[in-house]
Amino acid sequence: MATSRAGRILGRLESGKNLAGSACGVAGVGLALAGVGGAYWPVVVAGLYAAGALIAPPERVPPPPFDPREELGVLREDFARLREYLTEVELPAGAGAGLAGLLESYGALLEPGWVADVLATEPEAVHAVSRGVRQDVPECVDAYQRTRWWNRMAPGGESPEQHLERQLVVLREEADSVTAGLHEVEARRQQTHTAYLEERGRS
């Protein structure tokens, strides 16, 4: 407790505002010694200290460092749990094939290596894959199972199988869009390097 309090006091003494105020206060003492301010020199010194503290920039607290690769590590664990869950679910043939293709896309993006390293640099792409793995696919499958039961109890209406297949098509298109976006990132990187080499060759 005492060490923590001493650290806070030391931190205030070393703060930019205190240092700027102290510098202005020292200037105020110099002015007082030169005869400026007369009997009111303490007020001059205090005022200059306060002015220096006010004009000093506020202390900046640096944000905590986040490693996007750690997020991908957690996402891989969730993806493994999703695949385990899906092995216990009975799905229609058409939806099963579509789901297999979607999971293959997610797995290729999350596989440790340079592809995942590129993915980690694109927060929006990570968010899209995370949403698909943690929310969209489980919700699609669970909603299908629930609706299929109600449909058996009260036949009629739209087929739960068709809805599931349509949902998986949309998710596959989104995964393909993420892949295309990462491809574009790599293409831009290659083009930038080509331009750099050509410019270097001309100089």
Rank of each mutant, 00 (worst) to 15 (best):
T3I: 15
G7F: 12
R12D: 03
S15M: 08
K17I: 10
L19H: 02
L19P: 07
G21I: 10
A23I: 08
G25V: 04
G25Q: 01
V26Q: 02
V26R: 05
V26P: 01
V29P: 01
G30K: 04
L31A: 10
L33F: 04
L33E: 01
L33S: 04
G37Y: 07
G38K: 13
A39S: 14
Y40K: 07
W41M: 01
V44Y: 07
V45M: 08
A46I: 09
G47C: 06
L54C: 10
P57D: 00
R60E: 04
V61W: 12
P65G: 03
F66G: 03
D67F: 06
E70W: 13
E71Y: 10
E71L: 08
V74I: 11
V74M: 11
L75N: 05
D78A: 10
D78P: 00
D78Y: 09
F79R: 09
F79P: 07
A80N: 04
A80C: 02
R81S: 14
L82W: 10
L82C: 11
R83G: 02
R83M: 09
E84D: 10
E84N: 06
Y85C: 02
Y85R: 10
L86G: 09
V89G: 03
E90A: 15
L91T: 10
G94Q: 15
A95R: 06
G96W: 14
G96Q: 11
G98D: 08
L99I: 04
L99P: 00
L99R: 04
L99C: 03
A100T: 12
L102I: 05
E104A: 11
S105F: 07
S105E: 11
S105D: 10
G107K: 13
G107N: 13
A108Q: 15
A108M: 15
A108R: 15
L110N: 04
E111T: 13
P112Y: 00
P112N: 00
V115I: 15
V118R: 13
L119E: 04
E124A: 11
E124N: 05
A125H: 10
V126F: 11
H127M: 12
H127Y: 03
V129C: 08
S130Y: 12
R131S: 14
G132A: 13
V133R: 08
V141S: 06
D142V: 06
Y144R: 03
Q145L: 15
T147H: 11
W150R: 09
W150V: 13
R152E: 03
P155E: 02
G156A: 08
G157M: 12
E158L: 03
P160A: 00
P160Y: 06
P160M: 00
E161C: 07
Q162M: 10
H163C: 03
H163N: 04
E165R: 08
R166E: 11
L168S: 05
V170Y: 04
L171A: 12
L171K: 09
E174W: 12
D176Q: 07
S177V: 13
V178L: 05
G181Y: 09
L182H: 01
H183A: 14
E184D: 06
E186Y: 03
R188N: 02
R188M: 06
Q190V: 14
H193Q: 13
H193D: 02
T194L: 07
T194F: 05
Y196S: 06
S203H: 13
S203Q: 07
